[in-house]
Amino acid sequence: MSTHLFSARDMTCALPTQEGEKTIFRGLSFDIDAGEIVDLVGPSGSGKSSLLTAFARLNPHAGGTMFLDGRPSTEFTPQQWRCSVAYLPQKPVLIGDNVAEVIRLPWTLAIRNEQDDISPDTNHPVDPQAHARTRGKRRRSGIWGAVHNGVDMLPDDKIRATLDAIGCEDINLGRAPHDLSGGQAARVSLARTLLTNPKLLLADEVDAGLDDDNAAKVAAILSDAAQRGMAVIRIRHRPPDGVATRTVTLDEGGLR
């Protein structure tokens, strides 16, 4: 099909209303390559968020044909697709008792543990230290399936190093999420998705409501990720910050 990292064709979104359906956009096409940062702008209500959720296959009112590395989206399960095409919602929802748990959440999900369900190596003598480290790392609970806490896949020091690397030295892993400031919460939410290493990041106004300092930090984190090969689409309302490789406008149901 194409050599683009991600391609979307004929994207259509129609919201059900009382008088039938209201078309938000119809027949949109979009391509993005690895390492690109594309700013998506347009008047509010033009369907920017709907377009991003459609890309992540999260929007029940949208449809279209999408390709990732030339493979059609229908070849992926919704979970596989969303691991590669990650939607980052505008409002940070931090689930867990502390920052470390919040960031580990994606690693507790079945999609990142499927190949990991092999029984532990019994040929090696039990190392008490290793045992202590892995104690309670996963338990089975009947029909609820395997429950993982993700500590083995994402230890505290790795989270710490990653947070430091993206300028979040100020965030303590033991802090409760509701104690974080708005800027910190936005960066934790961003770090959580970044650590899952998606191929395409769909960032929905992640710098909205942040002060200039925090917005600049978020922009730096994203341009860093793009340099490592991640493609990023940002919805922004702020004036251009020079990070984007190009800007597209969504208006009256079309992309310009």
């Binding site: 999260l58 919704p78 990650a86 994606p106 609820w144």
Partner: peptide
């Protein structure tokens, strides 16, 4: 609602999101 959407976006199955 927001939590479910976040979980789904992070790759959760509907069972994991509803649990």
């Amino acid at each position: 609602r927001n939590e479910v959407d976040t979980l789904l976006a992070l790759g959760a199955t509907r069972w994991e999101a509803a649990r």
